Simulated assay, not measured.
Amino acid sequence: MKKTKRVISTLCILALSITALTGCGSKGSGKTYKIGVSQTTTHDALDSAYKGFIDGLAEAGYKEGDNIEIDFQNAQGEASNNNTIAAKLVNDNPDLILAIATPAAQSLANLTQDIPIVVTAVTDPADSGIVASNEAPGGNITGTSDLNPVKEQMDLLLQLVPTAKKIAILYCSSEPNSKFQADLASEAATNVGLETVDATVSNTNDIEQVVQSLVGKVDAIYAPTDNTIASGMSTVAMVANSNNMPIICGESGMVMNGGLATYGINYYNLGKQTAAMAVKILTGESKPADMPIEYLEKMDLTINEDVAAQLGITIPDDLKAKMNK
């Protein structure tokens, strides 16, 4: 009889141990969450934001093939594709949707007020009509902004190109995000004594001609975090650098593709911050309506030393010490 009791006790302990281990290896009740992703186009910044999002989810215990399923869609820069992707994702009714960049977010916002949506790489969600206000979104959408420190970027331009008097602000006229940034840049440039001229494109096919038209007319170019310009950055750099027009960029991917420098957003970290917001929504800890739009506090200084050498620009020692390696 004592032996039987001992066996039963051992079996109970084993059962409890297995239950505990099983619980530790999964999130919640073992549900698999479905997440749809709509990315406006392909370039370094947006790709990094997506990677940061996936890695951020994994660090929180949400891994593809384990407890999440991801349907990733890329519009490849075509406006109509954003609408098609939005319709598909909404029809699939996932637990959450990630919208990367403003056009993707706007298309989704027009189709659903029920499915939770987190956005990233959207400069000003309120200005873009995605949320009621950045402080209190009030609906089914929240997320992170890639608003740049435009004042600091203009200061950086003058540190690297102290003789600059007139600059071009290069952006796509059809991107609301970009127009918003261009206005901020124009004001910041004026405040430090720079004259500005807008140089706008409607698509990547316009880039070479527009940049070529600036030769001999401006001392430098400022390009915000514009998806069209980022996608065609190699063309911008080819024309600008060969004609001694340094480019101050909105983000580091553009610098790596031929720009001179930026003081700006780390999109990988922005993606991870967005993932943390998504986890709070999936777990029911928070609702998008009550989650203010978030911003990165830390910015990175990135300088393309090869481009600086090509342009004959000396990088001040204080900037070298702060550079993102």
Rank of each mutant, 00 (worst) to 15 (best):
N203P: 12
Q39C: 02
N241I: 10
M154H: 13
K322I: 09
S9L: 12
A49N: 10
I281R: 02
Q153M: 08
A79H: 03
P292Q: 12
V307L: 09
L194S: 10
K165E: 15
P224M: 01
T22G: 12
L296K: 10
A182Q: 06
S234T: 05
C249A: 15
G232W: 14
I35L: 00
S173Y: 08
N324L: 10
K166E: 15
E195G: 14
N177F: 11
L184W: 05
E297I: 10
C249S: 13
K320D: 10
A261H: 13
L311H: 00
K31T: 06
A87P: 01
N110L: 01
I8K: 08
E187A: 15
A276L: 08
E294F: 04
P149A: 05
I229S: 01
D146L: 11
Q73W: 11
A321N: 09
S231Y: 09
A58N: 12
Y33E: 08
D300N: 15
V37C: 05
L214Q: 04
A289S: 15
A276M: 07
D55N: 12
T32L: 06
I115V: 15
Q181L: 14
E251H: 11
L108S: 03
Q153E: 14
K166F: 02
Q310R: 00
Q39T: 00
I70D: 02
K88M: 08
T10M: 01
M238K: 01
L214C: 03
S26K: 01
N110Y: 05
E152V: 11
V122A: 04
M245P: 03
